[in-house]
Nucleic acid binder design. Structure first.
Length: 261
DNA sequence: CGATTTTGACCGGCGC
DNA sequence: GCGCCGGTCAAAATCG
């Protein structure tokens, strides 16, 4: 049953996107990072969190974000106009407007809806989701030149899981306004992400990371990850995702990168 | 006072 | 052609 949510999630993008890369990884979460910052590097301790926060009846106000594991699903964009050959076959001549918009969906176990990814977002809409009791929120990057959009919704069955879908790429660096968070961010975000276009092989590392991680924390991630597994074969085809897409987008779950070895 | 959230209306695409 | 649905806009409200 949980399939539906995934289906729904990707459904929209599925037909349009030619190449789909699904990577899911379970990583240590931000909470770990917090710990690190605090003083010690506790990466493994993350496991304990799962139970505690999940059971907690707390709402969300607290700024304590406990993200557990993240399953990441990456959907690549279409080539543009000619992409959809089969489907409707609707030829949009002037389709130039919408060029490539990469979509990346992250499943994160968190109590808070809006995960701090280092960018500034302005909410521009909210709608109820058909199969879900929880609303979906639409955000847009506040930087003017940056048309990146973000969509956040909760799993209809597991309120503790938040699905964040990024659309597009940031043209700018992360605002330095984070200050307090920045400290956290700094720990979170590796320098590489600050760089405009470093990791060309970014995608490459992905799968690897994930795989290795997967073995590790499936316990916690079991919930989220499992779902994904069932529905999609996460076979990383290694198609050839446009490297460009991910790198910028990735910053969010940067925890991926930074996980200490 | 400016930036951001809230919320209903509006719009385009799609299925019937 | 109509209605549903997902996504976006825009005005009012709210926050800092």
């Amino acid at each position: 049953m949980s399939d539906e949510m995934f289906k729904d999630l990707f459904y929209s993008g599925m037909d349009e996107y030619e190449s789909i890369v699904r990577a899911f990884g379970i990583t240590s979460d931000y909470s770990n990072i917090n710990n690190e910052i605090s003083g010690t590097t506790a990466m493994n301790s993350s496991c304990s969190l799962s139970s505690s926060d999940a059971g907690g009846g707390e709402e969300d106000d607290s700024v304590k974000e406990k993200e557990k594991q993240i399953s990441k699903d990456v959907v690549e964009d279409n080539g543009g106009e000619s992409s959809k050959a089969a489907g409707s076959g609707k030829s949009k001549k002037k389709g130039e407007k919408k060029e490539r918009e990469a979509r990346v969906a992250f499943m994160t176990k968190s109590e808070v809806d809006h995960l701090e990814d280092g960018y500034r977002w302005r909410k521009y809409g909210q709608k109820a989701v058909k199969n879900s009791a929880y609303p979906r929120s639409y955000y847009r990057c506040t930087t003017q030149k940056c048309g990146v959009k973000k969509r956040v919704e909760r799993s209809y069955e597991d309120p503790s899981i938040v699905i964040t879908t990024y659309e597009g790429q940031h043209n700018h660096l992360i605002p330095a306004t984070l200050r307090g968070n920045l400290s956290a961010a700094s720990g979170t975000f590796s320098p590489s992400m600050l760089t405009p276009m470093p990791v060309v092989g970014g995608v490459g590392f992905l799968p690897a990371e994930l795989l290795s991680n997967a073995g590790n924390n499936q316990a916690v991630g079991g919930g989220a990850t499992v779902y994904s597994h069932n529905n999609f074969d996460y076979t990383y085809n290694g198609r050839q995702p446009e490297y460009g897409l991910l790198q910028d987008i990735f910053p969010a779950p940067s925890s991926f990168f930074n996980r200490q070895p």
